[in-house]
Amino acid sequence: MTWLRTTFRVVGWPTLLLVSSFAFIAIFGSVISPYDPAAQNLSHSMQSFSAEHWLGADNLGRDTLSRLIAGAQTTLIGVVTVLLLAGTIGMMLGTLAGYFGGWLDEIVMRFCDFGFSVPSLFVALAFVGVFGPSYTNMILALSIAWVPIYARLTRGVVAAAVSQPYIESLRVLGASPARIIFRHLVPVALGQVLVYASADAGLLALAIANLSFLGLGVQPPQAEWGQMLVSAMPYIQEAPRLVILPGIALTLLVIGFNLLGERIALAKNPRAMSRRKLSLRRAIFKKEVEA
């Protein structure tokens, strides 16, 4: 179980707890959810915190806790799908561009430049504008907007690795491009992409909430935090919890992903030792030498 211990040491328990509890909620959400998130019960409309509805109910009498849980599912499924799609396509493009160079590299990089010069939210807006707002279209739109990030990241890593003697040795040995790409370059790029993606997930969660808030993403009655925020806006005076609770959920998720990304990045570039650790090392060395 060394990998578990390493993960624990690198990420630290607060971050791990935060991220894994969101993951747990997303996976087992339908089991732990007390109510059907879409089930309306107008007799419970605008109910506050109670034994029946722990976090209250909204204007249509839907259970807020259940809707928050469903919103976590919606957000995380969206985040993971976008990262998988954008990561895969971006890595494919970036690897090809970095390995073969030349005109292929030119085309991919110009595409990336275009993607970077237009804010990703605009790309998503345009896509949704053409194909109509829906959960699926939002995921596709965000994937397209996120591809250039991963293409450029991968291209940089691969282009640097290609000129390394160990890749050149493989070329001299007569290895096929497929072998060099899939066995040697992709694993190198994957490490970098995963590190980046862990920090990027928070940004994506915000983007999903943004689009849904603007009515371009998740459509009612499907539960989503940004969408919950919008529908609660008319009741902000009467029941501020309806706005505050999804806001807290979103904030926690973003903080969790950002911490995760930061901790992983830090593990790759260690800082100087803490004073406690240093004195510990000194003591160990003293014991070893004077034993």
Partner: peptide
């Protein structure tokens, strides 16, 4: 080509 190898 493989019969010519390179040492870096």
């Amino acid at each position: 080509r493989r019969e010519i190898q390179y040492i870096f």
